[in-house]
């Protein structure tokens, strides 16, 4: 494939099926939705494309803008937690003995092969009022109280353990997003760190830098491409989340994804739903464009 111009038929054979697939099942439906966003409802099912901007105007009302902002913040916090949790994991896998590496990677990917709905329900089982987490803490609580009784300190622990409100709030949504998207952060970080020349780390230590300093000035700095990929892979799907917030969130945990879903289904307002989802898509494009622009600028500064 060195020079595909010389073998155009080979090239076409390789790239043809994928292109056709994307065209038929991705680009065309997406174009359809894009047209909905500038259309009007006529009757319960028909939509006429009138090139109206009314749907976008409605989508930009303060109530939706607030939702956009909230979605953005939840996605941001979840991505940040993912990064902080995933980095040490990826680093540990890189430094693990060769024969354990694949097993460890498998453990990271394993939940990923389980249906997302099942995983989310499992989270509910963990977090609900009488879930495993609360039961576990409750057991520890009773045990500690029992131990403190002989020395008369049991008063410190209060009358009885009140289960923590772990489910149906924003924290649960963030927790759910982190749980579901963690592999998307670990894998690009691992791929990046695995390529890191170990002697760079040794050189930094040799030159007198502490372990912590070496971590931040050499390892993190050189893992930047992996960090950026990981952030994109987690942040963008997190922006569009609706299942997790629907199942784990409370009444105030509605994200933009939930609203879009409701417009498409319950409210049967496809044009508004389309406008909202395209606003989200434009925002994503803007973020990617900004990233590309920053990368190009950094490269120019280097040259």
């Amino acid at each position: 494939m060195e020079n595909w111009r010389r073998q155009p038929w080979v090239f076409a054979t390789f790239i043809g099926p994928g292109t056709l697939w994307l065209l038929l099942f991705f680009l065309l439906p997406l174009g359809w939705i894009w047209l909905f966003a500038v259309g009007e409802r006529e009757g319960p099912v028909d939509i006429v494309v009138t090139w109206t901007l009314e749907n976008y105007r409605e989508a930009l009302q303060p109530v939706y803008l607030q939702l956009f902002l909230k979605t953005f913040l939840i996605a941001l916090v979840s991505t940040a937690i993912c990064l902080v949790v995933a980095f040490p994991v990826a680093l540990a896998i890189c430094f693990a003995p060769e024969r354990y590496k694949n097993v460890l990677l498998l453990l990271v990917i394993l939940p990923f092969w389980t249906n997302m709905l099942i995983r989310t329900y499992a989270m509910i089982a963990m977090l609900r009022q009488n879930g495993f987490v609360n039961d576990g803490i409750g057991l520890l609580w009773t045990g500690l109280k029992y131990l403190l009784t002989p020395i008369g300190m049991d008063g410190l622990m209060g009358e009885r353990f009140a289960p923590l409100p772990l489910l149906y709030n924003n924290t649960a949504v963030v927790l759910g997003i982190v749980y579901v998207y963690l592999p998307f952060m670990v894998l690009p970080l691992y791929a990046n760190l695995e390529k890191l020349d170990r002697s760079l780390i040794e050189a930094s230590l040799d030159l007198g830098a502490s372990q912590v300093r070496t971590f931040f000035e050499i390892i993190v700095r050189l893992a930047r491409p992996g960090i950026v990929s990981g952030i994109i892979l987690v942040f963008i799907p997190a922006l569009g989340t609706f299942l997790i917030s629907d199942l784990l969130g409370g009444p105030d945990s509605q994200l933009i994804g939930n609203v879009v879903e409701r417009q498409f289904r319950a409210a049967n307002n496809l044009p508004l739903g389309a406008a909202l989802s395209f606003l989200l898509l434009y925002l994503t494009f803007l973020a990617l464009a900004l990233r590309a622009w920053f990368a190009a600028r950094a490269e120019k500064a280097d040259a």
Binding site: A203, S204, G208, A209, E217, L222
Partner: peptide
Amino acid sequence: VNMVFQSYAVFPHMTVRENVGYGLRVS
């Protein structure tokens, strides 16, 4: 002691000057 590595291990994200200054800066 200081070492010159077989792969040189020159930090790719730093200029020549920053590379040479790194050891002094961190100590």
